[in-house]
Amino acid sequence: MATGFRRGRGRQRRLDRLSRTHSLGIAAFVIAATALFGTVGADYLGYTGRALRQRAPWLIVLGVFLTLWEVATAKFAWLPLPFFPPPQAIIEVYTDDLPKLLDSVFASVKLQLGGYIIGATVGFLTGVSIGWSRAVGYWLHPVLRFIGPLPATAWLPIAFFTFPSSWSASTFLIALATGFPVTVLTWSGVASVSGAYYDVARTLGAKPSFLVLKVAIPAALPHVFVGLFMGLGASFALLVIAEMIGVKAGLGWYLQWAQGWAAYANMYAALIVMSLLCSGAITLLFAVRDRLLVWQKGTVKW
């Protein structure tokens, strides 16, 4: 695996490094031809055709960008190596360094998912209790105000020596970063539920548990999802920082490591993967939201 990095370092390896040029050319040609014929013949391709035609301008821009990139790096070397590798070098990372990348993806997803689920659950429950119970609000509100606005990253040094492992420390910090916005928005969602809803439910015979579960929580759900969205962003930042500083696995660590070896192609490759993962997570969250909040009008299409 380390050979993948080393291979890119010396100038004498340039030829080796550009070994995928031929296959890249063929692949680019095939994709371009498919897009071209697909767009021209869209009328015969039904839904796929329409989707393709709609995206045709973007496909052209992407094609031009990739061509410029290829020309500026591999062909004329206008951009200095090794900081700006050609496209084929990045493809090479995906083929040659795949196991390590996958390991990193797996480690990141595991850490992120654990911390996020814990943080979101605790934040949601805390938010509902603060919004619902005056006594809980009295005790938790000051704590929340004192600790919440502190960036979770500020806890990094303390967390890494108080927790038994860097993994548990990071999980805690990701949960903290997620939990604060989720708590505050759930709380404000529950607090802003119109009293008229409770009146209606009470006159129809609702008990307090019904008021919480079937009135307060569904009414607060749009706010909760704003909190979950904000928490997701905050937790991504924490994940990457934690992996760069303490955890010896994951995409953040991979980035750091690649930089140490000046393996810039690996860095770009990891960045692309990271971007896809983060975007995918938000897509997933929005899909869940759209499902649960079908009754809402005009939600943002991600």
Binding site: A196, Y197, D199, V200, T203, G205, F210, P218, W295
Partner: peptide, 24 residues
């Protein structure tokens, strides 16, 4: 009570709104 505003629960369908009392 029927209030001046219908105060239907926007997250429930018409059927589920009407079912509210029996459910509660």
């Amino acid at each position: 009570v029927v209030f001046q505003d219908p105060t239907l629960f926007p997250w429930r369908t018409v059927w589920d709104n009407v079912a509210l009392g029996l459910e509660a």
